[in-house]
Nucleic acid binder design. Structure first.
Lengths: 363, 363
DNA sequence: TTGTAGGCGTTATCAG
DNA sequence: CTGATAACGCCTACAA
């Protein structure tokens, strides 16, 4: 009988099975040739003893941790949590664990977090839209596989997975202009945020492409939170003349704006069209259902892991990958092909079978 | 000059500084006595060489990983992500890393995840409202510090941090009844979910305490998602007589219900009162702002970590801790002290300075 | 105050 | 096919 209450090691298994630790190791790792009978015996003993290899010892010699590090600006909200969900699934499928850390906005915090993760991970996924890619890479241990999420261009030699912020924003604003809106306002994200800048650029180009003018007073800065969207919308309501449409650079701010409009008695979309960006899952359930630019949020996470796993095998060349977005028109911008008032009939809906039959997807 | 591009170890530091590895180790860990001059020299060399101790080697001998494992049913959504945020902050303050994993609903998945984390973490935080505490503990390595989140009672000898599901639900339903509603419906969570069962129990007791009857047709089961809330609300709308109030067992379902009501042309709260549970951050921004039972979500995570860290020092006795909830009355249930129609004036709001001055908190 | 040396649990490289 | 045995990098008695 072997000692209990004490960690049992490969030696215990070897002794109990009547073989050497080398052979046990070969069985457990499927490395090297082992006679079938031997394998059976060792496996039996190992499972009977509930043997579990010591992770530290193993990674000390293999120099692998089977862990991926994830650094995000925040862990909270429908966006980030959906990214993490994607990462989690893909990582598990690949047999990797996830070491996560949030709240990394400035360079020092990032460096501290990376430093702390050093030696604990085989690769890193970093999203930090406020920092230049080069600056992130600079503070990193050489040779550590890395994939950046939503980072600036001009980062040759760095792997990254990105969302088509510019194209998505441009398409949405074009859509709003096409509905006849002359004064489309934008609630942007922080100026030091790359995603925010790109979405703003898309807005500008869309307006100018239509021969319109970008009025500076229609550009309000938020910070991607509901409360900032709420505040920004109030500001826009004070303008004279008022805008007739608001494009928020993300859904959270759009929802904050909807809340402010409702408080002010402004009816959406009749008196004011509203649109967001990201198409977070809740977007279709707010009132009125929010038009948005669909972003494959979970796919962003999944893809990041896939790319990282490839980078770890060193086979791939570093590239910048851009995931396409898709316009999703719901009621909030009044551009649906189905008259919004028809939605008062739940019956009509049931017949069509879908949740939001009036939802229209453009390319 | 020392070799580059190769891991540098404590030996390198020792050689370069002219001391033994033992002394270097003492300096780096502040263990044992070291002469000031020696310490300075070694620290200088270590930082010049950018020496970083090998995590695996260290934890092989110390038998510590400085990592906390977190197992959740899901990583997605305002609730779970807020819990994680709390855990992340508290863990970082305590100097711990976070190994997370989502999608663990049945016993096998939990056991597999725990097994995989074995040896990688110093302690575990597990939320699995669908499993009995004993069953979770059974599949766990002995001696591994553990804190359960929102688990059933009757788990003596197990640490847990919980939300007062019963009390919160009861209070909310009492409030609705107090507003004069005779037929209050509930959109519950899945029957195998502990939180859901407790909230349902609170509902039942509140109704019966008021001498009312619990009508079975007013009990509709959801699964905590917006879409299930949407579906459930449609079902309730088909009833005759209709309920006049809907209590959803969480905010996501309440939001789904609001969406269904709006589609059906039912005005909230005039024609139907709606209330949720959790008070996720977005609750105050939906239309109309959602009454809810405030749960200290982030605090749940923070507290779990605090308790786990204590459990790891083995000083505390195992207890079941219950965090109090708080009723938050907003417009969706019509029970606000401020007439909802006043909210049409954004100006009035600005004067009061607060976002939602009509928000009322009861105890 | 400092150095020597043993051992943590595995894997990997050799012989046999 | 199997078995010694040397790393892996670090901590920690025990000596000096």
């Amino acid at each position: 009988m072997l000692r209990r209450l004490v960690t049992i090691t490969i030696k215990d298994v070897a002794r109990e099975a009547g073989f050497s630790v080398a052979t046990v190791s070969r069985v457990l790792n499927n490395s090297g040739p082992v006679r079938d009978e031997t394998r059976r015996r060792i496996e039996e003993v190992a499972s009977r003893l509930r043997y579990a290899p010591n992770v530290a010892a193993r990674s000390l010699i293999t120099r692998k941790t089977l862990t991926i590090g994830v650094l995000l600006p925040d862990l909270y909200g429908e966006f980030f949590s959906e990214v993490i969900r994607g990462i989690d699934r893909a990582a598990r499928i690949g047999g990797y664990h996830l070491l996560v850390s949030g709240s990394h906005n400035d360079r020092e915090e990032i460096e501290a977090a990376v430093h702390a993760m050093h030696g604990r991970v085989d690769g890193l996924i970093v999203m930090s839209p406020g920092l230049e890619p080069r600056s992130i890479v600079a503070g990193l241990p050489r040779r550590l596989p890395l994939v950046l999420l939503n980072c600036e261009e001009g980062s040759n030699g760095i792997d990254s997975v990105n969302v088509d912020n510019y194209g998505g924003a441009r398409e949405m604003v074009q859509h709003l202009l096409g509905l006849g809106h002359q004064r489309v306002a934008i609630i942007g994200g922080a100026a030091d945020n790359y995603d925010a800048r790109e979405r703003l650029r898309g807005y500008r180009d869309a307006v100018e492409a239509e021969g319109g003018t970008v009025y500076e007073e229609l550009l309000v800065e938020g910070d991607f939170t509901e409360s900032s969207g709420h505040k920004a919308a109030r500001k826009l309501l004070g303008l004279d003349p008022r805008p007739t449409a608001i494009f928020a650079a993300n859904d959270s701010m759009a929802i904050g704006a909807l809340s402010a409009l409702r408080e002010a008695g402004v009816v959406v979309p009749e008196q004011m069209a509203v649109a967001g960006f990201d198409d977070i899952p809740i977007a279709r359930y707010v009132s009125p259902p929010l038009s948005s630019v669909h972003v494959p949020i979970r796919g962003l996470g999944v893809r990041a892991v896939e790319r990282l796993l490839l980078a770890m095998t060193d086979l791939m060349e570093k590239t910048r990958e851009v995931l396409p977005t898709r316009l999703v028109v719901r009621e909030s911008c009044g551009g649906s092909t189905v008259d919004a008032r028809k939605t008062a009939s739940a019956e009509a809906r049931r017949i069509e079978g879908a949740h939001n039959p009036e939802e229209v997807v453009k390319t």
